[in-house]
Design a protein around this nucleic acid. Structure first.
Length: 609
RNA sequence: GGCCCCGUGGUGUAGCGGUCUAACAUGCCACCCUGUCACGGUGGAGAUCGUCGGUUCGAAUCCGAUCGGGGUCGCCA
């Protein structure tokens, strides 16, 4: 090693000892006579002092140092002179008095600050990702990710799980997300697909008798990107035999709580994880991935205003819609502009408008004696005082609150109120950044009716087992069949999905048929799985937490690109290497591929003049 | 594909019809400085305002198109 210690590990312990450090020049403070260098390596920062009276030669070299130069320094660790300690730096009590320095490499001036946390155009970050990763915050994110994955491996190993790799080149199983495809050279016209998840393989590993499997698995989905979605992402994939829902839920609850206690002890977790049914989550939060760190819960007001004179409410309800709302504490004084902003937010998510009721904020006014002219709302003249009072009661509203109401199609109303709720959670500072509010969502329906295709679709995937007692309903009323499925949600993010799987051929085939597959299709796509189920497949189930999102939440990051070493931008482009890129004619030939004219002209267009 | 936001020296911002021959901070270069830690001081270089077109006597500024980026809806079994 070129170094005896790392910069960050130095403490008073080493005072008097000669050490050799190596790292990057984080900052230079040149006092003419004295030169201070903040030397940075992976573990932290240490101050190195160059004094011409100690070493003239070293001081001269230090004079020419610039940010990000790579140096090796030898010197004695010394206590800083009294009064010059730096409490902001973990190593701030000591410094290294340089007696020798070696310049290992120079550096061009970086295109952005490494030693300051200033936001920069993200494409620039991505182009010079290796420099972005040098920033202490990014470095910490990646180190945190390492600790998270290490913890998961250790935890599951201790529980008897076996780490088994599954192939990246596999068979395309249509439905679900779009596959990334890999053309075969050896088999003209045939393609491998990259796994969207190792779903079928982990089930086959249960058939194989491994009983407890896990893998930190890369998954690929060719869909549009989002702040929490990348074309390739990582799951902690796990599967167990001879279990029911409780076994899996207890396992992951313990996994997550001890994970947070170990790698991020300053964050709090709700214990035990609350459980919400899908229906309840939709009812109270308007979404199946609620942020339960704060209230502002949605209430259904349809009953209260069913006979209302107000056309907006009445027509919504008559058209099998709903009237739902939330109560915003202390927001009655919102300005016209602020209300307009909320209305605009509602409109962009499909609402025709937003009805607001501002309750009087006079401290002495009790809402029991509320009168209609005290309520500021365009709807006030169409409502009775009793209706308003019922609403107040339903929300447990206080003087000065603002009730926000959406009327219309139930899914739209839920979606809009979910948006408004989260936006107001942010504005009212109700989201505790140090709280991880994990919640289990259970009781999903097994199937959803797709109006466009006229087919039943699996709510999650076709391998999810129905409740035993609901199996007869598969023939009578598929919409009523409940799935043995569970989601884990945290702070508004879906972290994982899992289920108890179907483990008999008979039931699996029945579900496939219900989904509209022909026997031929079933055989082609799932023949190997169905056959496996005939060879003594044990009851089994599993779950697959998304590691990128877990680390993002633990890191307090806004998007998963912050916790992935080399992510792609929203156009799925690797800006650093410029992938995807053209390949040579020869490569295409070998793969028996020919580009379509439209692809070629697109390439011409982008190549530009 | 739809909608919203953004594009001005290396970086981050200001400027939003004429006084912009584009400002500020930081970075960069040179010199000075022996206790700084976002060191300090003096001086200097550096942008035809994403691109194209239009309106106008005059455009960084207004309009249109286009490209690029971010967010989001669709999509993500």
């Amino acid at each position: 090693m070129l170094k005896s210690h790392s910069c960050g590990e130095l403490t008073k312990e080493q005072v008097g000892r000669e050490v050799t450090l190596a790292g990057w020049v984080h900052r230079r403070r040149d006092h003419g006579g004295l030169v201070f260098i903040d030397l940075r390596d992976r573990e932290g920062i240490a101050q190195v002092v160059f004094n011409p009276e100690i070493s003239k030669a070293a001081h001269e070299v230090a004079d020419g140092l610039r940010n990000e130069y790579v140096i090796k320094v030898t010197g004695e660790v010394a206590l800083r002179p009294p009064g010059t300690e730096n409490p902001k730096l973990p190593t701030g009590e000591i410094e290294v008095i340089a007696s020798d320095i070696q310049l290992l490499n120079t550096s061009k001036t970086p295109p952005f600050y490494i030693n300051e946390d200033v936001e920069v155009d993200e494409n620039l970050f991505l182009k010079y990702r290796y420099l972005h990763l040098r920033r202490p915050r990014m470095r910490d994110n990646i180190l945190l990710r390492h600790r998270v994955e290490k913890f998961m491996r250790d935890f599951l190993d201790a529980k008897g799980f076996v780490d088994i790799e599954t192939p990246i080149l596999m068979k395309s199983t249509p439905e679900g997300a779009r596959d990334y495809l890999v053309p075969s050279r050896i088999h003209p016209g045939k393609f491998y697909a990259l796994p969207q998840s190792p779903q079928q393989l982990k089930q086959l590993l249960m058939v194989a008798g491994f009983e407890k499997y896990y893998q930190i698995a890369r998954c690929f989905r060719d869909e549009d990107l989002r702040a929490d979605r990348q074309p390739e992402f990582t799951q902690l994939d796990l599967e167990m035999s001879f279990v029911d829902e409780e076994d899996i839920l207890n396992l992951v609850e313990e996994l997550f709580t001890s994970l947070v206690e170990t790698v991020k002890p300053e964050m709090q977790v709700l214990k035990p994880f609350p459980r919400l049914s899908y229906a309840e989550s939709m009812e109270r939060y308007g979404t199946d991935k609620p942020d339960v760190r704060f209230g502002l819960e949605i209430r259904d007001l349809s009953d209260i205003v069913a006979d209302s004179e107000f056309a907006v409410f009445r027509s919504a309800i008559q058209g099998s819609g709903k009237v739902k709302g939330i109560c915003l504490p202390g927001c009655a004084a919102y300005s016209h502009k602020q209300l307009e902003e909320l209305t605009e937010l509602a409109r962009t998510h499909g609402a025709k408008g937003l009805i607001t009721l501002a309750l009087p904020s006079d401290d002495h006014a009790s809402l029991e004696h509320l009168t209609l002219d005290e309520v500021k709302s365009v709807a006030a003249k169409y409502l009775t005082i009793d209706q308003v009072k019922e609403m107040v009661q339903k929300f447990e509203a206080k003087p000065g609150d603002l009730v926000v109401i959406v009327a219309g199609e139930p899914n739209m109303a839920n979606r809009v109120l979910d948006e408004v709720r989260r936006e107001m959670g942010r504005r009212l500072n109700l989201m505790d950044p140090n709280l991880l509010a994990f919640v289990f969502i259970v009781g999903y329906p097994l199937l959803e009716w797709n109006n466009e295709t006229g087919l039943w679709e699996p709510m999650h995937h076709p391998f999810t087992a129905p409740y035993e007692e609901d199996i007869p309903l598969l023939d009578k009323d598929p919409s009523k069949v409940r799935a043995r499925h569970y989601d884990i949600v945290c702070n508004g993010y879906e972290l994982s999905s899992g289920s108890i799987r179907i483990h008999t051929r008979q039931l699996q085939e029945k579900v496939f048929h219900l989904l509209g597959y022909s026997s031929k299709e079933i055989e082609e796509r799932f023949g190997h799985l169905l056959e496996a189920l005939e060879f003594g497949a044990p009851p089994h189930g599993g779950i697959a937490p998304g590691i990128d999102r877990v680390v993002m939440l633990l890191a307090g990051a806004e998007n998963i690109r912050e916790v992935i070493a080399f992510p792609k931008n929203q156009g799925a482009v690797d800006v650093m290497s410029d992938a995807p890129a053209r390949v040579s004619e020869e490569q295409l030939d070998e793969l028996h591929l020919k580009l379509k004219d439209e692809a070629l002209s697109e390439l011409e267009l982008k190549a530009g003049p």
